[in-house]
Amino acid sequence: MTRVLRWDVLVGALLVAVFAAGSLAVPGFATTGNLSFALGDLGEIALIALAMTLLVVAAEVDLSVASVLGLSSALVGALWDAGLAIETIIPLVVLVGAVCGLVNGLLVTRLGLPSLAVTIGTLALYRGLAYVVLGDKAVAQFPPAYTALAVGDVPGTPVPYPVALFALLAVVTGVVLHATGFGRALYAIGAQEQAAFFAGIRVKRIKLLLFVLSGTVAAFAGVVFTLRYGSARADNGLGVELAVIAAVLLGGVDFDGGKGTLGGVIAGVLLIGLLRNLLMLGDVSTEIQSIVTGLLLIVSVLTPRLVSLVRPALKGTP
């Protein structure tokens, strides 16, 4: 693709267009308060999308992230109920998330199972565990100092803390993906796994690491989610994996691996966030919001394929 027509640039342009249209058409959209809220509402999706980007570039996927988020939330509630200090709970829960990721990774790398199937299985499994841990009750009343961290803004800015953390991690992820040998290895694995292995890249070890990372980040997102809503529930974050994957694919990462940029994914995340916010401001029901997410997912997978089918026909070359 030419520079101008690159998918991630297109998504960036679309983002600007949606923002402009929203500002003109929807009252109360382009206010600092609303945008700050919209960003904050996006925090968990954005965090998880970073790890997911690395996985999808390497031609793998983790569908269990929302369930890990839910399990993490349920654990926070149960352990808080049991009287543990929040300072103990957070590292413990994040560790459980790492183990969840490790299980996914081992099933994929040691047994050679497709990650799509494995993580559909653990999607159900981890969500089930969340209900085992907390049942259908809700735990609330977390220390205000921590809930304030989850909803509060960085002093002097309208940027919520989780979003600031996302910005920091996004820079790190961007450097890792685009400028380090590790990042190069991910693209090679995603594009041609055999050739990567033949070049001495430790394919299995890297994939295992990615799954552990994904589980860890999802569990941490669960902590943020719980504190932000001030409520630990087993069904927290239901369906978040779809929003994450929609954002990653919308950002131009090829589901078959080997292609995509982090910049595109960030644009994709923001676009999804803006659309959700606009729909919410327009009092559109959650069912319709779900329909929009689903359509976006399909469109973002379909469009590049259509383009690659149509382009040669237009050029008249094979």
């Binding site: 594009a191 041609q192 080997g258 292609k259």
Partner: peptide, 11 residues
């Protein structure tokens, strides 16, 4: 096998 093992064709 140059195309599968030797090279990452998209790179």
């Amino acid at each position: 096998d140059r195309r599968q093992q030797g090279l990452v064709m998209e790179m």
